[in-house]
């Protein structure tokens, strides 16, 4: 049995890895073509305002140095072979290797995203339960209304509102940036970092709650109308004990997997929240790269975000396979046949 399970997981991961590889190749190819198609001139983007001082000759030299005069396919081949050997190129705006920029930014972003992820998961799960346990009452209606409204709220607008209320009116939090301005890097305390993290994280969690809450509510209502809960009710169980004994385990798993599968939205939300609060994370780097034509960085970020989303999805699938006894037994049963 045990062996069977491990074997299942290994084959599953193997197929996932192959799929990931095929997707990554396609993504890098398509994004490379898209970026090459862009009317934004990479040399002009690199040189900036000094473009007038660059003669035609120098220009051609830069083109030759970067290999821009070669056919697109050859450029793609040389870029992708460099990527395969771990070299993502050099970012034009930061004048640093792309992998370094992404690594540093990712540390900032992961702090922000994980806080928001946990907060939105926990809050969403709880209010989803609250709504389902009180179906049809004003609590349920209010929570439902709140969630549907949130689903139509622009993330960046929510960020702006929080900024107005907490940073401008109440003056509780700084207006932006990851660390206080004009302070040396070694003087930045952990408190400063936390202070700068709260508002963007709050923005992301407020928006992220809706999905989990609605899903949990739906699932719990289904569970509550099942035969075994009706029987438990007939035996006299009610309220929290009923939920604890029969509800929680059935709805926890879908909620957790949903949270993992929502990495894509989390990343998208982080782009907006980081831009509003000028928090130096991956999202802000993506916007900068797009605005200022930093092609190596943009391509690197696209690949990185794809891997990030994919990891989330694989974890979600794995949890289902490993944790849920029903799918496990179902699998081994299917194999036996």
């Amino acid at each position: 049995m045990r062996w069977q399970l491990t074997w299942n997981i290994v084959t599953f991961l193997f197929w996932k890895a192959i799929k990931m590889a095929s997707l990554l190749v396609a993504i890098s190819f398509i994004s490379f073509l898209l970026v090459k198609n862009s009317p934004i001139d990479p040399i002009q983007a690199y040189v900036g305002a000094d473009m007038l001082n660059v003669s035609q000759e120098q220009r051609e030299k830069i083109e030759e140095y970067w290999g821009l005069n070669q056919p697109v396919m050859e450029q793609f081949m040389s870029w992708s072979s460099a990527v395969l050997s771990g070299d993502l190129g050099t970012s034009m705006i930061f004048r640093l290797p792309v992998s370094e920029v992404i690594g540093e930014r990712f540390l900032n972003s992961i702090a922000l995203m994980s806080v928001a992820w946990v907060l939105s998961g926990v809050i969403g799960f709880s209010i989803g339960i609250l709504a389902a346990m009180n179906t049809g009452t004003w609590i349920d209606r209010m929570i439902k209304w709140y969630c549907y409204t949130l689903a139509s709220t622009p993330t960046f607008w929510m960020g702006l509102l929080l900024l107005i209320v907490f940073a401008v009116w109440l003056n509780w939090f700084p207006v932006g940036m990851g660390v206080p301005a004009g302070v040396l890097a070694e003087d930045v305390t952990i408190m400063d970092r936390i202070k700068h993290l709260i508002l963007p994280a709050l923005t992301l969690s407020i928006i992220g709650v809706a999905n989990v809450a609605l899903h949990t509510r739906q699932k719990l209502i289904e569970v509550l109308s099942s035969d075994y809960v009706v029987f438990a009710r007939a035996r006299g169980e009610k309220g929290f004990t009923l939920f604890w004994r029969h509800g929680l385990r059935n709805i926890a798993l879908p909620a957790i997997t949903l949270q993992f599968a929502a990495f894509s939205e989390l990343f998208g939300g982080a782009v907006l929240a980081e831009q509003v609060f000028s928090y130096p994370g991956l999202g802000q780097a993506t916007v900068e790269a797009g605005l200022r034509g930093d092609i190596p960085l943009l391509l690197g970020l696209v690949l990185f975000s794809a891997i990030f989303v994919f990891v989330g999805n694989v974890i979600a699938d794995l949890i289902y396979r490993v944790v849920d006894p029903r799918t496990r037994e179902g699998k081994s049963y299917a194999v036996k046949q």
Partner: peptide
Amino acid sequence: VPHLVSLIL
């Protein structure tokens, strides 16, 4: 790829 990232691209 996250929607927003592909939109930017």
